[in-house]
Design a protein around this nucleic acid. Sequence first.
DNA 1: CAGGCATACTCGTATAGACGAGTGGGCAAG
DNA 2: CTTGCCCACTCGTCTATACGAGTATGCCTG
Lengths: 262, 262
Amino acid sequence: MSPLPSGLLGDLDPTSDRAVFRQIADQLREAIDRGRFREGEKLPSEAELVDHYGVSRMTVRNSFSILQGEGLVHAEHGKGVFVRPRPPVRRLASDRFARRHREQGKSAFIVEADAAGSHPKVDSLEVKEEKPSQDISTRLGSVRRVLARRRRYLLDGRPVEFATSYLPLDIARGTPIAEPNPGPGGIYARLEELGHRLDHFEEEIRARMPSPAEVKTLHLASGVPVIHLIRTAFDTGGRAVEVCDTVMAADAYVLSYQLPAT
Amino acid sequence: MSPLPSGLLGDLDPTSDRAVFRQIADQLREAIDRGRFREGEKLPSEAELVDHYGVSRMTVRNSFSILQGEGLVHAEHGKGVFVRPRPPVRRLASDRFARRHREQGKSAFIVEADAAGSHPKVDSLEVKEEKPSQDISTRLGSVRRVLARRRRYLLDGRPVEFATSYLPLDIARGTPIAEPNPGPGGIYARLEELGHRLDHFEEEIRARMPSPAEVKTLHLASGVPVIHLIRTAFDTGGRAVEVCDTVMAADAYVLSYQLPAT
DNA sequence: CAGGCATACTCGTATAGACGAGTGGGCAAG
DNA sequence: CTTGCCCACTCGTCTATACGAGTATGCCTG
């Protein structure tokens, strides 16, 4: 195994209070930030860093685990540790549910992704009646049973978002909303046809680390948070007619809102 | 050292493909989710888990590091590992910059926190002229120099948010905006007095893991992401008159937006 | 030439041990 | 009683070693 090119990474400072594995992580982070390692590029192997710094393997692995936690790198078994590429982000504008966008036959997700040159896909479609959680029930005005529409969105094969819509059963049962494909304009178009003219939406946004189930569903690398968005749709009568609970891979999204100054 | 109460945590499954440290993390996570360990409560010590499961200490530590990465627990040197309490969250409504909220003498942050019974504080105040980053310059319409206003917000002694406002120098220089305390209603009130009547705001929201500097500034525990919000204020002439770059501790915030359905 | 296997290199998991440093309680000296 | 020290317990850091499992490459065999 050949040694690292000199100058690529510095030396350790034995007089420093900073732990050795942190110093190594600092040097790797800086090298990445400075572009010495580019996106997708392989970092030196554990063995190479062991030789370079004269430390044990666990110390090097400790450094890598810091960078993984920061979302900077990811390890591939049998291959190496790589600088995590920044995936293309999907921009969600606050007017994406405006009535004028609701005329096409295809869903907003498909239209938008096609326009951006990506290959969109929707899978894990599930539509069923169920008992809502306390939180969902409250948001919908204490309903006992709801129609739940679950689906997962993928871009170019990568899962980016998992969403569940909840609708009061008295609104949705027996309508196209209860079908896997609700038709052109989506469920919001159907709700308006059913007499629930939409007035406004409320969106709540949180960010947190994913649960193990979310890591699995969204194929999340370590160090990638999720954005948790809960949208409630209100009709002109002030009734909450839908709650949509969405979990998004945070590295795949930028949310954009336009707000009046009045 | 007395053994753990039996039944608190299960046994390992040696036939499972799942790594031992993951099985231990799973059991601890489940115990936390089920409320067997409450918020702020101490988990069994590393030594106790070593005895209970008959594994080495590094394996137990590995389990803890998983839970730390998920933001579920945090370790305190010399004390133990504790279930991370969910701090009270601050709710940011989308109308928080509406003109009607701009009449009071105190800043929105102070007013809001007082109302919630928290003890707010603002520190690290810095106001200076500087050369903007490429991104900030673009957002402000290719200005060469800006006034930067930096401040950190704390609730009950805990830093929760770090924000920098950038304003074109030709607007802000020599005005109260360039003073540490811009006066009642904040800089938006001053901008309007200067003839820049505000028309609308654009907000961009991202979530990601914090940089080491952000960890330090916001005293973030590991496993806590940040919400990165960039707000641009436009006057009625369509000019971008301010860009505010805000980094928030994600576990301290819920953002809330109200959107028209039209 | 095509296919399969050996091999070297990669990271993943786990053990055992050592010392350091922060915390808190109890005991002993004043 | 108060002060200060010691000690037990906690997590933090680091070493050394071992084996497993995924990947890629090149050589050998058919």
